[in-house]
Design a protein around this nucleic acid. Structure first.
Lengths: 243, 243
DNA sequence: GCGCGCTATTGATCTCGATCAAGGTTGTCG
DNA sequence: CGACAACCTTGATCGAGATCAATAGCGCGC
């Protein structure tokens, strides 16, 4: 396994996932338990059931969490994008297969010291709770997609979510033309959306034919009119601004 | 809305969801912010988007969390069984419709004082994190069901999960014969499993015809051989004991 | 008891997405 | 360059579950 380990004093994680409110002494302490791991696209980070003696935060690249049934049916239950967190306190063994779907760098923390650190840093525990609740909301939104949306709506929803997230990372607005690289193969998209890869391919072709998206190569998606694509997701289009 | 409010010094919640590790002074304090609310089967606890100025724990009965699309397609994204928790810190507005699917009693805590209490009671914050992570795991298991299981497997999975949970509440073993009342109509089951009510009905009839379950009336399910039913869920049957 | 509303069952038919199958594209390595 | 592998697209057909429709049981109030 290609696992580069290095130390670094300026982790992007500080400013994103965990430590927006950490003080310098706390950051120092986090640094002592921190190391980086790199994975190539396709590599497995951990298998479900493996001992996992670290928690981690995604620095760059994308990983997927998936579950597989004995007969091979697979469901991706979550994507880890930059700043997303992996691992749960108090759990020694991985629950899901974690796979790098693109080249991936993670900032890892050894579990024991990290848990000890969390125990005496309340705002870090709060931040963990906040992140977990956000993930729970995302999972529940995905349940609506898996249970009730058509193939076309599923594809449109996926593109909207990836597009929005991608724009957020680049600090761009999500209106007007938007372009991004799909971090998933057709098969991975199928496993995320509860479809077959053929259906994914056909629906992408249909959206292309209708001008809702353009393809540059197989992987790069251009969305000329983000609002128009959102109208295909089946969701309320007000972006979920409640209150 | 039938909303009985009473105070009570011996809340079952103490021993379950929140306070297994609370000390007597903390329990006193929790009591000052606690009140009970009762709902009849079918009543709505809150609508998505409503202001919700309390958090709550289910004392008895069952509630469902659901999302509905404009055209009426509905997905139940979670069931709240006794001891389950509702509401998230820092969120003033409900994200999902919450409906009593049976007669329901909830133990409620006013949000502001509860949040303040949480902020200075670290083990409560930890307990919240633990519960949220468990819910996340449950949601992800359900994603596999929604995305990849057949109608038959979905029904079998539902019965296994309700049966197991019901047995746990009654402190019974989950082998040999097991009987419980279905807390959901056929329609609610359909909305939970991502099916139509006709398909639910047909699959239940099929399981009955094959002797995997018996029906006593419309709602009471008897499972003569729990292992045999588990074999129909498509899951590994070792009950997920990893490590 | 009778009629009404709600829930559940069952049948007939249709349809969306799965499955099976055949190419086409792209990239890599000798 | 050519061969091979991985990934993607498209077509033909199939089938699980949706949809449409009719009927049946089951309280509940009058």
């Amino acid at each position: 396994m290609t696992t580069a380990i290095k130390r670094c004093g300026e982790c992007p994680i500080r400013h994103r996932a965990l430590c927006a409110r950490c003080e310098p002494p706390e950051l120092e302490e986090l640094d002592t338990m921190k190391f980086y791991r790199s994975f190539e696209a396709g590599q497995t980070v951990v298998w479900a059931g493996d001992r996992m003696d670290f928690m981690a935060s995604v620095v760059s690249g994308i990983a997927s969490l998936s579950q597989t049934m004995e007969d091979g049916r697979t469901q991706i239950v979550g994507l880890l994008l930059p700043s997303d967190f992996l691992g749960r306190p108090g759990r020694e063994f991985a629950t899901y297969d974690v796979t790098a779907t693109t080249d991936l760098v993670m900032c890892c923390f050894r579990r024991k010291p990290f848990e000890a650190f969390m125990a005496r840093t309340p705002h870090l525990a709060n931040r963990m709770l906040e992140m977990t609740l956000d993930e729970l909301d995302a999972a529940r939104e995905w349940m609506l997609l898996l249970g009730r949306k058509t193939a076309r709506e599923k594809i449109a929803s996926l593109f909207v979510i990836i597009g929005r997230r991608d724009a957020a990372l680049k600090l761009k607005e999500t209106d007007g033309e938007l372009a991004f690289d799909l971090p998933l193969t057709r098969e991975a998209m199928a496993d995320y959306l509860g479809l077959t890869l053929e259906t994914v391919s056909r629906q992408i072709s249909a959206l292309k034919r209708e001008g809702l998206i353009r393809l540059e190569g197989k992987r790069r998606i251009v969305i000329p009119d983000f609002q128009a694509l959102m109208a295909e997701t089946g969701d309320d289009c007000d972006g979920g601004i409640i209150g």
